[in-house]
């Protein structure tokens, strides 16, 4: 298993892929933003503010997707002790936290024209908020433990425990919200979405995915370098 996880080979591979990732990210964002900000029609109720959705919804999707990537990488790290897996999990967390933060901020900005207030304890916003806290806990564990091997194992446990809890938390927040909010409140998952909105949304989702891939590759390379430098320094001090 270790042979397939050669960080040197990964670095070489990442270098070849990276330019393509950067290129497609830029291209997808250009196309996606053009369609969502210019081409897509105004909403008959919300007007121009509906365009926040094209930034907000993919960010929320990526917040979830990144946690899934982190949990999968953690599972691989804990089961096979794959040396790249814990690098993948560790570096995914800050990116995921940023997506989550973006989803929260854009949700709040969207809330102002929609609900007349910056923050509403809507079920989705609330569960995304809890997700943000889960990210912070995970990052805190990495920061609190010096020894990389130990930190990797404990952080992996934290990620998996969080992953098991996400559906339970989501379900409980939905339950809580349905108790406290009347059904007339604006819901994002209203009737079927028209294709003039759906297509830009999907392009934006793809752009976000490529952005994640690009950032994640760069972050993983940086983390591998960081560990190498650390090892070299240690060898120098003790040599």
């Amino acid at each position: 298993m270790q042979a397939y996880a050669n960080p040197t080979r990964f670095n070489a591979l990442a270098l070849t892929i990276l330019p393509w990732c950067v290129g497609s990210t830029v291209l997808l964002f250009l196309v996606g933003l053009y369609y969502s900000l210019v081409v897509a029609p105004q909403d008959y109720q919300q007007g121009e503010t509906v365009r926040i959705m094209f930034i907000h919804v993919p960010a929320a999707w990526m917040a979830m997707a990144t946690y899934t990537v982190m949990a999968l990488a953690s599972a691989v790290a804990i089961i096979w002790r794959h040396p790249l897996a814990d690098v993948a999990a560790k570096t995914a967390a800050p990116i995921g936290a940023c997506f989550t933060f973006l989803a929260l901020v854009t949700g709040s900005l969207w809330g102002k024209p929609m609900w007349g207030t910056w923050w509403v304890w809507d079920a989705r916003l609330t569960s995304v908020f809890v997700l943000f806290l889960l990210y912070l806990g995970y990052i805190a564990i990495w920061q609190a433990i010096e020894e990389p091997a130990k930190a990797a194992r404990l952080a992996a446990i934290v990620a998996l425990v969080g992953f098991v809890n996400i559906p339970i938390i989501k379900y409980s927040v939905d339950w809580w919200n349905s108790l406290h909010q009347p059904a007339s409140v604006f819901r994002m998952d209203g009737p079927a979405i028209h294709s003039s909105i759906l297509i830009p949304l999907l392009i934006m989702a793809l752009a976000y995915t490529m952005l994640f891939l690009t950032l994640h590759l760069i972050a993983m390379r940086t983390e591998i370098m960081r560990r190498r430098i650390h090892n070299m320094e240690q060898a120098e001090v003790q040599g």
Binding site: A140, W176, L179
Partner: peptide
Amino acid sequence: MIISLLILPLYVPVLIFGVS
């Protein structure tokens, strides 16, 4: 400090169904 950050989010379901 870290315990609070790790555990309080996991307490959310207990809180919600307990209060409910």
